[in-house]
Amino acid sequence: MLFKQNSCPSEQSGVRLFECRQEAFGVQLNCYAFAAGDVLIDTGSHSLRRHFRPFIDEVNPELVMITHHHEDHTGNASYCNSKGIPVLMNPLFRKECTEKANYPFYRRMFWGKRPAFQSGTLPEVIHSGRDVFKVISTPGHAADHVSFLNESTGQLFSGISTFLLKRKLYCGKRAYLPSSGRSGTFLRMTSTRCSVAMQGM
């Protein structure tokens, strides 16, 4: 088999983390999804669907929230559509996601060809069961990137690397932030207090 795949489910602070790894040509890439209460955050890549879809079935979320449109985060959103699970995302690239995916070959090789999917627009605050998620605009890694702060638990979910210092959150990929979004994203992230940071790649 050209690609070596494996999955590693775990749980931290009541949140289920599903991590998949794909390796080829000496390169290893990771892909993530989180289940918090009745919510699924991101859906993994289409190339790893045989791992992510059973996890989605097991979690059986009432709602899917997408951190950004990249194919390793939205690869199974169409599967959620087929199960009647609402998918919400930043509307910036929503139209592109309703169309046939078009991105470079090296990304298709690792993440597969993301099927088109339908989504609604993320509101500023999402109520799900006992959880209240605040949607925080954090462009940089992707122009449409958002993070989710569970105000009920203090958990912060991000599709990019972050780190905590004295209960404040800092953006771990600051070098990739374009000048147009750098200062605003950094200020929003450093002013966000959270107890636990859950991060994707």
Results as ranks from 00 to 15, higher is better:
residue 117 F to W: 03
residue 4 K to L: 05
residue 143 A to V: 00
residue 39 V to Y: 03
residue 153 T to I: 08
residue 123 P to L: 12
residue 99 E to Q: 14
residue 31 C to M: 05
residue 4 K to I: 11
residue 165 L to R: 14
residue 80 C to I: 04
residue 139 P to R: 08
residue 62 E to L: 07
residue 13 S to Y: 02
residue 142 A to Y: 15
residue 110 F to D: 06
residue 113 K to Y: 01
residue 6 N to L: 12
residue 93 F to R: 09
residue 107 R to I: 03
residue 113 K to A: 09
residue 49 R to M: 07
residue 29 L to W: 05
residue 88 L to H: 11
residue 136 I to E: 03
residue 124 E to V: 01
residue 195 S to D: 11
residue 127 H to G: 01
residue 161 S to E: 13
residue 8 C to G: 00
residue 99 E to K: 13
residue 174 R to H: 01
residue 134 K to Q: 14
residue 3 F to V: 06
residue 167 R to H: 14
residue 162 T to P: 00
residue 64 V to S: 02
residue 63 L to Y: 06
residue 177 L to W: 09
residue 28 Q to W: 02
residue 74 T to Y: 07
residue 163 F to W: 12
residue 113 K to D: 15
residue 132 V to K: 11
residue 197 A to G: 12
residue 31 C to P: 04
residue 43 T to K: 03
residue 199 Q to C: 14
residue 38 D to S: 15
residue 65 M to E: 02
residue 184 G to R: 09
residue 133 F to M: 10
residue 103 Y to R: 04
residue 68 H to Q: 02
residue 141 H to P: 00
residue 39 V to I: 12
residue 90 N to L: 01
residue 39 V to G: 03
residue 180 S to L: 09
residue 182 R to S: 12
residue 115 P to H: 08
residue 183 S to A: 10
residue 9 P to I: 04
residue 48 L to C: 07
residue 172 G to H: 03
residue 164 L to D: 08
residue 112 G to P: 15
residue 47 S to A: 15
residue 71 E to V: 15
residue 9 P to T: 10
residue 84 G to I: 03
residue 108 R to D: 09
residue 49 R to W: 02
residue 126 I to A: 04
residue 74 T to C: 11
residue 132 V to T: 15
residue 148 F to L: 14
residue 111 W to V: 02
residue 77 A to P: 01
residue 165 L to D: 11
residue 88 L to R: 09
residue 65 M to I: 15
residue 20 C to T: 15
residue 176 Y to I: 08
residue 32 Y to M: 12
residue 156 L to V: 06
residue 83 K to H: 01
residue 91 P to R: 04
residue 158 S to V: 02
residue 184 G to F: 00
residue 64 V to K: 00
residue 11 E to L: 02
residue 164 L to N: 11
residue 91 P to M: 02
